[in-house]
Design a protein around this nucleic acid. Sequence first.
DNA 1: AAATATACATAACTTTCTTATGTATTTGTT
DNA 2: AACAAATACATAAGAAAGTTATGTATATTT
Lengths: 121, 121
Amino acid sequence: MYICLMYSKELLKGTLKTIILKMLSESDSMYGYQITQKVKEITEGKINLTEGALYPALHKLEADGLLTTEKKTVGNRVRKYYSLTQTGNGRAKEKVEELKEFMETLKVIVNLTPQNLAWSN
Amino acid sequence: MYICLMYSKELLKGTLKTIILKMLSESDSMYGYQITQKVKEITEGKINLTEGALYPALHKLEADGLLTTEKKTVGNRVRKYYSLTQTGNGRAKEKVEELKEFMETLKVIVNLTPQNLAWSN
DNA sequence: AAATATACATAACTTTCTTATGTATTTGTT
DNA sequence: AACAAATACATAAGAAAGTTATGTATATTT
């Protein structure tokens, strides 16, 4: 069964890394699967990060020096915990700020009325 | 010279069609170049739609029956005016609503604190 | 015992944009 | 008058960033 409470997934494009960085900036460390579950939880199922996007993104962020990893064995299974580097912490703030500003700009468009569209030619 | 006041363009991905539909829903009709200029104007230069993205998107929306076109000759030059069909008008409202909801959900993430992240395990 | 959830990973493919290029007219500048 | 910049459209090659599918393996629930 495939229930999709999500938005048109196109919208999510471009926000994934920012979401990852923000999640990690509010936590000491998280592992991949945990990030997907936390995001699903706090967005009430509206954002479901797919593994095919998440893991490559985490690897990229690590390769870029924004994340470090530490493997922890729980039972018989290995979890890979990610945490922000100092650089990653700075980048997280930048990316979140950028996203906030972008949302403000989008607001201008979605709240557009014929009046404020027409005030100039 | 290439001044870029824009956000990381990734964020814009997935929002183009919604922006086009919203612009047209607040106007009788607009032509392509006019849309780019209006969007640039109302966002104070923060969103610059590129022609390489805009025109194919307009063609796609027309092919999908959401837009109709009317050519008007101004001087010696032909402008292609786009307007929403009835279907397009409905779709515009859906897409804008979807974008608004998505922005609300993103707000939950960007305003996240360790407290509301930690309330459940 | 079987199905579902947890946990990671990667490869093929698609979508959607960027960048570059092309054509042509109009307007502003020197 | 000549040239640059702006207006106005179009499309093609390539990049970026996802989705979908698949694989592996353990743990938990039914």
